[in-house]
Each structure stands twice: as structure tokens, then as C-alpha cells.
Amino acid sequence: MVYIFIQLTFFAPRGVEEYPIAEEEEDAEPTPKLLENWVLWIAITIGLILFAYTIPVFEILQHSPPGSPPFDWPIGK
């Protein structure tokens, strides 16, 4: 792979390689505007995160044990 990469970068013959971006069908139905409502989707994402994490993280903080000091020797330092 690395060999091919080097070939493509420095040695392959000059030319234009296409950048393949596909198009839609001409008769495709229009995409709903709703899908580009960024505020809505980001809000739902954050809502879901808060739902899934708020209480357990709060519990982790509340029941946290005495903390751990750093350990260096187990990794051979």
C-alpha cells in the first residue's frame, strides 16, 4: 500500500483523475427541509445525552471513593 501511495504521489504519469461525486436522479423527489434544521437535531442530540448521562454521572460523583494517586512503576517507568 505504501508503495502504491508513493507511486501515485511521485511517479505515476501526469493526468487528471476524476473526483467521483454522484448526482441525484433527475426526477428525485425533493428532500424535506426538516432534515436541515440543525438547531432541532443538535438539540435532540444534546437532550439524549443529558437524559442518558446526567443521573449516572451525578451518582458517580456522589458515591465517589477516595481518589487514586498516580502509578508509574507498573508501566516500567
Binding site: 502504491i4 507511486q7 505515476a12 504519469p13 501526469r14 493526468g15 483523475e17 476524476e18 473526483y19
Partner: peptide, 25 residues
């Protein structure tokens, strides 16, 4: 992606030989 993106960026071509090598890879 690399097989077309890199030659596109460097202004070179993915030759049939390199294509074959890519398939083997």
C-alpha cells in the same frame, strides 16, 4: 478512496498497473 484521491490531488493517474496492484493489495 486513496486510489483516486491521491492521484487527483497530485495531478497524476491511477494506471492499469497500479490498479491491478491495488486489487492484489
Amino acid at each position: 478512496i486513496t486510489y483516486w484521491l491521491v492521484p487527483h490531488l497530485t495531478g497524476r493517474r491511477l494506471t492499469p498497473r497500479l490498479n491491478k496492484l491495488g486489487i492484489i493489495q
